[in-house]
Structure formats: structure tokens, C-alpha cells
Computed example of a mutant assay.
Amino acid sequence: MEAGYREELLAALRLQLEWGVDEALEEAPIDRFAVRAPQPLAMPQPDAPPVLATPAVKAAARSLLPMVPPPAAAAAALAAAAQDLAGLKAAIAEVDSPLRDTATNLVFSDGVAESGLMMVGEAPGADEDRLGKPFVGVSGQLLDRMLASIGLNRAENFYLTNILPWRPPGNRTPTDGEITLFLPFLMRHIEMVRPRHLVLLGGVSAKALLRAKDGITRLRGRWHQVETPAGTLPGLATLHPAYLLRTPSAKREAWSDLLLLRRTLNGDAAPQ
């Protein structure tokens, strides 16, 4: 090799070192997960530029991490393993949810499980969280009076629960993630109780169980088909009593829903 050409190469290498280059790149990317045979060192030839040996690329050791199921899948497994209502309540208490850290009591159910009529709300409020029972606050008292007007009471004729067992901070609306996490427990709850009719109290409950996007004002006033592990059940969507406290003018629609419920229970109106 001519001395001048060699000096140019060395000068180029020195320049790259000054710029901070500390490794050589190949024309094609290196597959660092492939096992390659060690490359022999090239023996320098007289009057030839030094040849950099290509280092052997070792196969990257991939650590096999255990597959951790997502929270909803873990919750579904817990729900499926429960054998009775007491076991289901205990399983809910095991769910790792931030709601559990901010609530006082787990709110499971109230009323008569064997009544054949199951009512599902959205989440406990402050009074429910304090007492550990659903619908015991002001809205629950209104619900009791409404149902009493058609001859129903929780000591004999119906059963109450919520989608969420824990009170959301500040009584905020449940998030989609929270509903997804606890819905398997509600479905298992329905499967155990085996009601003949469902009443969906409020938009959160109605949209979750009906898998609908419409608001409660569009869903209320008629029977829907609710797919549950216990089979397809008739579900009546109606306004939540807390909404009626804020909007007294809507009580007319709620009264209409109650009359439809009464006629259906009497056998005078078949669920559509």
C-alpha cells in the first residue's frame, strides 16, 4: 500500500476517534439473538491496513418471566371459584383495587336472595359505606317508599346489590376499568341467586349489564334481555333514586316503570 494512502486512512480513524466514535458498524444490522460461530482473527498482511476482527455475538439470554394474568382475568377466576354467597363476598374482599383503600366497608347485598327479584345499582354512597349495606341512605329510603307503593319490601320481596362493592371517593361515577374489574363478581352473584327478573337502577347499571351505549332515558321504561351465566333474564331499566332526588320531575317516568314492574310480577304484562 502506498504510504500516502495509509496515512489518509489513519488520519480518518484519528478524526473519528476525536468525534467520539468508539465502535464500528456493519453494513447490515446484527441479529444479537442468533448464535454465531466465533470468527477467527485476521492475520495482518505486509503493507496492509489492520483488519478489525468481528467479535462473536453471543445469544442474548431471555429471562422467561411468569405470565401474570390481568386484574380482570384474576377477578374472573376468583369469582368463578366462589361456591356460595359468603365465599363470593370473601373473594371480592381479596381483589386488589384502590377503591378498597379509600372505602370503609365492603357493601355486598341486602334483602331476600330467594325472592326472584334482584335489583342492581351502581355503587355504594357515604351511608352505604358507613353501614355496609346497599341503598340505606336518602336515595335508598326513597327506593323503599317507591317499591312499597306497589307492595314490595326488602324484607320479603326483593334483593339488592351494586356493580361496585366499594364506594368510589366522593361518590364519583364508576370508571370503565372499575366496572370491568367487578362485573365478573356481579355475574357470579346473579348466577348464585338465580332471579326471575332484574331491575337495573340507573344508567351505569343498565349500560353495563345490557352492553349498551344509550343513556338511561332511552333504555328505561321497557324490558330488555340480559345475558347472564344463569341464562337470559328479563331486565327492566329504570331511573336511579339518587337521580330522582336531583330531578323530581322525573318521578312520573319512574312511577310508570314501577307500574310496569308490578304488572309483570302479577303476570299481567309479559317481559318483551
Rank of each mutant, 00 (worst) to 15 (best):
P241L: 02
Q45G: 15
P69N: 13
K213I: 07
A123Y: 01
K133D: 10
E191I: 03
A12L: 06
E18T: 07
P271E: 09
L106W: 14
A155G: 15
E8P: 10
L260G: 00
L210K: 13
A230F: 09
T264L: 00
A270G: 04
R14N: 11
L201G: 12
E23D: 12
V107R: 07
A103M: 08
A82K: 02
G231C: 01
M187F: 10
G231R: 00
A212H: 06
L142R: 02
P55T: 04
R220W: 00
R130F: 04
R14Y: 08
K58N: 10
A155L: 13
P50Q: 12
Q83H: 03
G221S: 10
D96L: 03
P169I: 02
A113Q: 04
A237P: 00
P165D: 05
L210E: 11
L88S: 08
E114Y: 00
A72H: 12
L117N: 01
Y5F: 09
L209S: 01
L186N: 06
G87Q: 13
A90H: 09
A48W: 11
P38I: 02
V35F: 04
D101S: 13
A74L: 05
W223M: 11
G140W: 07
G125I: 00
E122A: 04
P50T: 12
S139A: 12
Y159G: 15
S149C: 13
A123P: 00
G151R: 11
V57P: 08
A34Q: 02
G267I: 06
P40R: 07
L52Y: 09
L9T: 08
